[in-house]
Design a protein around this nucleic acid. Structure first.
Lengths: 165, 165
DNA sequence: TTCGCTGCAAAGGATTTGCATTCTA
DNA sequence: TAGAATGCAAATCCTTTGCAGCGAA
C-alpha cells in the first residue's frame, strides 16, 4: 500500500505549470484568458488540496471583491473540464473540489471522523478486485468512488483534537 | 464473491416485520403512530429497494393526496434514525434512500452507467483490505462507501436498452 | 469590432422550517 | 387535554441562468 501523501505547499514552479495547463486548455477551446480566471486558479492553488465553493469565493473576494459566485461556479466547471480539478461529493448538498495532481494519479479517500481531514491512498489489490467483481456481474468498470470513514487512533495528532486543547 | 442479489417482491409477512420494527422505534422514542407514517412505510416497502423522494411522494399521494413533502422528509429522517432505511447520495443534488434488510447485511454498489440500475454486492477480500489500509494509516475503520460505476456489457438485459426498444 | 466573460439579480431544485390546526395517546 | 404530527407556504441552501454591459483577441 502506498504511504500517506504529505501535502507540501505548492511551489511557484508548480503553480506555473497549472497556469500553463489551464491556458493551453483555454486556447484549445477557443476561450479567453481573463483576470478573474487567473485569480481563481491562483487562489485554488493556495488552498488545501480539497476545498469548497464558500472558501474559494471568500478568498477570491479578498483579492478582487467584485468577483461573483456565478463566475466561481462557471470557472469551476471549466477547470473540471480542463482536468485541473475534480468535483467530489462527500456529503449531501455540498460539493467539494480537489486539485488534480499534474502526475494524475488515481486514489481513494480516508475521511477522519474526528476532524474531517481527508487522507489519500491507493491500493492496487483493491483496484484489481473491483475490476474482477464488476466483470463478474457483466459490466465494464469505468470509474469508482471509495471513501473510508474512520476514527483517529492517535488523537494527539488529530486536527480536531488539537482544536480542543 | 457473493452473487448478484435477486430482489423478490416483499411478502406480507416481511412487510409486517418492518412495520413492527418502526412501531417499536416510535414507542421507544415516545413518538406517535399516525396514518401518514403507515402509508409512507407501506409505499416504501412497495417500491424498489432504492428510491427517491419524488417517487415516494407521488406514490404516497395516490393513497392519500393530502400528504405533503414536509411529512415525507420528516419521516424519511425518522426512518433513517430507526435504521429502516439508509440515506445515500450517488450524485450531487439528489438523495436516494435504501431499505435496510432486516438481516442487516452490509454491501457495496455497482451503478450502471447506461440505466442507473443499482446492483448490490459484497466482497470479503475488499472489506479486509480496507481494514488493513486504515489501520496502517493510524485509524480505526467505522464504515465506508464504495460505488463502482460501469458500462453494461449485455445491453439487451439493461433497463436502459429495453426502454429504447 | 466581435463575441466570450462578467456581475448582478432572479430563477431553480431540493430540503427545511414556522405556524396554526389536527389528532394520537 | 397536552403536545406531537401534519399541511401549507415561506424560507434556506446551493447552484444555475438571463441579460446588459465589459473587455480580450
Amino acid at each position: 500500500m502506498q504511504k500517506k501523501k504529505v501535502l507540501e505547499p505548492r511551489e511557484a514552479k508548480e503553480r506555473l505549470r497549472f497556469h500553463e495547463k489551464f491556458e493551453a486548455y483555454l486556447k484549445q477551446s477557443k476561450l479567453r484568458q481573463t483576470k478573474q480566471r487567473q485569480v481563481i486558479l491562483d487562489i485554488i492553488l493556495s488552498l488545501s488540496k480539497h476545498f469548497d465553493v464558500e472558501t474559494l469565493l471568500s478568498e477570491s473576494k479578498k483579492v478582487d471583491k467584485s468577483i461573483g459566485v456565478a463566475t466561481i461556479y462557471r470557472n469551476l466547471q471549466l477547470l473540471d473540464e480542463a482536468k485541473i480539478i475534480a468535483t467530489r461529493h462527500f456529503e449531501i448538498g455540498k460539493n467539494y473540489f480537489e486539485i488534480i495532481d499534474l502526475e494524475e494519479k488515481h486514489h481513494d479517500h480516508l475521511i477522519c471522523n474526528d476532524c474531517g481531514e481527508i487522507i489519500e491512498f491507493f491500493n492496487k489489490e483493491i483496484e484489481d478486485l473491483q475490476e474482477k467483481i464488476v466483470k463478474g456481474l457483466g459490466f465494464k468498470l469505468t470509474h469508482h468512488k471509495m471513501d473510508l470513514f474512520a476514527d483517529c487512533l492517535k488523537k494527539r495528532s488529530c486536527k480536531f483534537f488539537k482544536n480542543k486543547l
